[in-house]
Amino acid sequence: MSGYILFSSEMRAVIKAQHPDYSFGELSRLVGTEWRNLETAKKAEYEERAAKVAEQQERERA
């Protein structure tokens, strides 16, 4: 899992709640824009969280 995927899943729900009429493409475009504009430190937080999720998933598969 990547930081972007984690961010995307969280942001998509927020944007969808604010704009229920937006298409999947419109939501994706907005999520991508939000990610590109996100501060580097915040991106790093998402990357760290994603790494922890990936480690947990790997342990569960073992």
Score class of each variant (00 low, 15 high):
R12G: 15
R29T: 09
V31I: 13
F7S: 02
E10H: 04
G25W: 08
K16Q: 13
K42T: 06
K16E: 10
G32Q: 15
L38V: 01
G25N: 11
V31P: 01
Q18A: 10
Y22V: 15
G32W: 13
A50S: 04
A44S: 09
M11T: 06
E48W: 06
R61V: 11
S2W: 03
E55I: 11
Y4R: 15
L38Y: 00
A50Q: 02
E26H: 05
E55T: 11
E10G: 01
K42D: 04
M1G: 09
E58T: 12
E47D: 08
K52L: 10
K16I: 05
G32A: 15
P20G: 04
I5S: 12
F7T: 01
A51S: 09
S9K: 14
I15R: 06
V14W: 05
E45L: 08
Q18Y: 03
V53F: 15
V14R: 15
T33K: 14
E58Q: 12
S2T: 09
E47M: 07
K43E: 00
E48P: 00
A50L: 01
G3L: 00
I15F: 15
W35M: 01
A44G: 05
E55F: 09
E55R: 13
A54P: 06
W35N: 01
A54E: 12
Q57M: 08
L30I: 12
F7I: 00
G32E: 15
E58F: 07
S28P: 02
V14T: 11
A44E: 10
F7W: 03
H19Y: 09
M1L: 06
R29K: 13
A50Y: 03
R59E: 15
F24I: 11
E45Q: 09
Q57G: 11
A13K: 14
A17Y: 04
A51F: 07
K43D: 00
E60P: 08
D21R: 04
L30V: 13
H19P: 00
E26Y: 04
E10C: 00
D21M: 03
Q57C: 10
Y46V: 01
V31L: 13
F24Q: 15
E58A: 08
G25I: 09
R59Y: 10
G3R: 00
Y22N: 05
R49L: 04
S28A: 07
Y46Q: 00
E60S: 09
L30C: 15
R61E: 13
A13M: 07
E39Q: 08
R49C: 02
Y46N: 01
K43M: 03
I15H: 07
R61T: 11
N37I: 04
A17T: 09
V31Q: 01
A62W: 12
A17E: 14
Y22C: 15
T40I: 09
S8G: 05
E55N: 10
A44N: 11
R59N: 14
G32M: 13
A51H: 09
L27V: 14
R12A: 07
K42N: 03
P20T: 03
S9Q: 14
A17V: 05
L30D: 04
I5F: 07
S2L: 07
L30W: 05
R61W: 10
K52S: 08
S23H: 05
V53N: 14
Q18G: 05
E48K: 08
Q56S: 13
R59W: 14
R29Y: 04
K16G: 09
T40W: 07
H19F: 03
H19S: 04
E34M: 14
Y22L: 15
K43T: 00
E48C: 10
Y4M: 05
E34G: 06
G3S: 02
S9L: 06
E60C: 11
R59C: 12
R49V: 03
Y4N: 04
R61H: 09
F7V: 00
F24P: 15
R49H: 01
Q57Y: 08
E26Q: 12
S28H: 05
M11V: 07
V53Q: 13
P20F: 00
E58S: 10
M11N: 05
L38A: 02
E60A: 12
Y4L: 03
T33E: 13
R29W: 04
M1E: 06
Q56A: 12
E60G: 13
D21C: 07
A50R: 00
I15V: 09
Y46W: 12
G3H: 00
S28M: 06
L38T: 03
Y4W: 10
A54V: 09
V53S: 08
G32V: 11
Q18W: 01
N37K: 13
R12C: 12
P20I: 02
A41S: 11
W35E: 02
R12F: 11
E26C: 03
A41G: 10
R61K: 08
R36V: 08
A50M: 02
S8W: 02
E58W: 06
L6S: 03
A17G: 07
R12P: 01
A44T: 09
G3A: 05
M11K: 13
E47G: 06
I15C: 05
A13Y: 04
E47R: 07
M1V: 09
E48V: 12
P20H: 04
I15S: 03
L38S: 01
R36N: 14
P20V: 03
E48G: 07
R49S: 02
I5Q: 14
E10Q: 05
T33V: 12
T40M: 09
P20Y: 01
A41V: 07
A13V: 04
E55P: 11
G32H: 14
E58C: 12
L30H: 15
A51C: 09
L30N: 06
S23R: 04
K42G: 03
Q56H: 09
R59L: 13
I5T: 15
F24Y: 13
A50C: 03
F7M: 01
R59D: 10
Y22T: 14
D21T: 12
T40Y: 08
A62F: 12
S28N: 09
E48M: 09
Y4I: 05
M1P: 04
A44M: 09
R61Q: 13
V14E: 13
F7L: 00
G25A: 14
I5C: 12
Q56C: 12
Q56K: 11
H19G: 03
T33Q: 15
S8V: 09
A41R: 10
G25K: 12
M1H: 04
E60W: 06
S23W: 00
K43W: 00
S8D: 14
K16N: 07
S8N: 08
A13F: 03
L6P: 02
E47N: 08
R12Y: 14
A54C: 08
E10W: 01
A44W: 08
G25V: 11
E60M: 09
E10Y: 02
S9I: 06
N37L: 08
A13P: 15
A44Y: 11
K43A: 02
E47H: 07
